[in-house]
Design a protein around this nucleic acid. Sequence first.
RNA 1: GGCGGCGUAGCCAAGUGGCAAGGCGAGGGACUGCAAAUCCCUUAUUCCCCGGUUCGAAUCCGGGCGCCGCCUCCA
Length: 465
Amino acid sequence: MGLHLMSTLSRRMEELTSDTVRMYVCGPTVYDLIHIGNARPFIVFDALRRYLESQGREVIYVQNITDIEDKIIGRAREEGVPASEIAARYTDEYFQDLERLGVKRPTHSPKATEYVGKMIELIKVLIDKGHAYVAAGDVYFSVASFPGYGKLSGKVLEELEAGARIAVDEKKRDPLDFALWKAAKPGEPKWPSPWGEGRPGWHTECVVMSMDILGVPLDIHAGGNDLIFPHHENEIAQAEAATGKTFARIWLHNGMLTVRGEKMAKSLGNFAYARDVVAEYGTEAVRYFYLTRAYRKPLDFSDEALREAKKAVEGVYDFLWAAEALPEEGEIPEGFSAELAALEERFHVRLSEDFDTAGAIGVLQELVGAAHRLRQGGGDPIGARAAAALVRRLAQPLGLFQRARPRAEGRTEELIGLLIELRAALRSQKNFALADRIRDRLSQLGIELRDTPDGTTWTIRKGSG
RNA sequence: GGCGGCGUAGCCAAGUGGCAAGGCGAGGGACUGCAAAUCCCUUAUUCCCCGGUUCGAAUCCGGGCGCCGCCUCCA
């Protein structure tokens, strides 16, 4: 099935046709742990990547690590350690957080500091072509030299300048010009260059790394919608001014995570670290929370919303684990097979239209409901098992519903079985006081018993996984 | 001020021209020694407001109102 995505650049749906998808997602600046809002693009574009792979496409997924930047230098100063130490520490923490979030490692995670030489090459080209100029050790991109400037963000140069809140910098010819190379101030990390010692500007690294690893045009360039201007606008200007070719075909931008309607941001202090949220609610609740809202829309973070997501996830597991414990008996009614096929089709249709994960997850929930009704109507166990298998298969690219039922270790299972057996005997003798005591004590140990018409089953308490 | 987005049930949320998905919550019921869990059913005559186009609009067009993001580092 085809896939259409809403591109910020064209402001319309674009079909993604390539079998090999070259995809670039803006990564973190490693000066601190990522907050839960930062995790949104990582999760949704990871899901997109996996969905593309599930369609049999090859995805080359590149995500940069900005390991030289003002905030890193600032933090290093505060702690009195080299900037490289701060960057190394938070790069490591970032990879750990990706794992906690259930995000697959990018195919490539290039670091800015490893591309300084290639950035200098790009800057040289821009100077040669008249798109950049040197000013007292700095190099600036001349916005006026690139006619397409503003095409991504829909901004018009004159209006930007009229309302410019940008601090006037004497070195710039135009207040909108942005730094490609910054001269080093005393004590700052620095690299040699034809314009003196310094370091590259932030907007340059993504261009150089993406073009170096993926070539142009990229199939997909993605990131938060707060990067549309100026970051991505500036990337387009540099890349297209240098190469004369289209930089990226499809631009995807996720909406911001908000708290009581306001953007979550370190500077506002209204943030929670991603790892803390995962520790409290679990990886899947976090993924479910994100994937049940269209990636382009703003999404409000709250404990209530996360709790709700967690309950919804547990509900699906209740179904999966119960269905998978059923015997493989009977036949799937023809009508039910057709229903499953129709639901599968609807699931894919939802994803094919701008990767509507929320709609697709709604279909998964319908699948669960259909299986329940089948059982209720006296359908064979195999039907529910088929539905469960389908849920697992479809949810796999979303990174949801892949966990096996938690099992106790070693002899524990047999011992629990023994207690259940004893309790059943007590119940048949109407010794409910003792039977209830077994149930209560096991519950205290995190083992929940459920008396069903088919006998007693048990589970390790939810939420412990 | 410019550019962009959002407004659907108590809450969250999908749907973008043909009878309003789904989740959470709530109410009723089944099951049960009790409990918990689970399951079933119910829960928007209507999609912020006002006009228009259409046989038909939550969906398209025009005009309002409200909220948010970007325009400075930001996922």
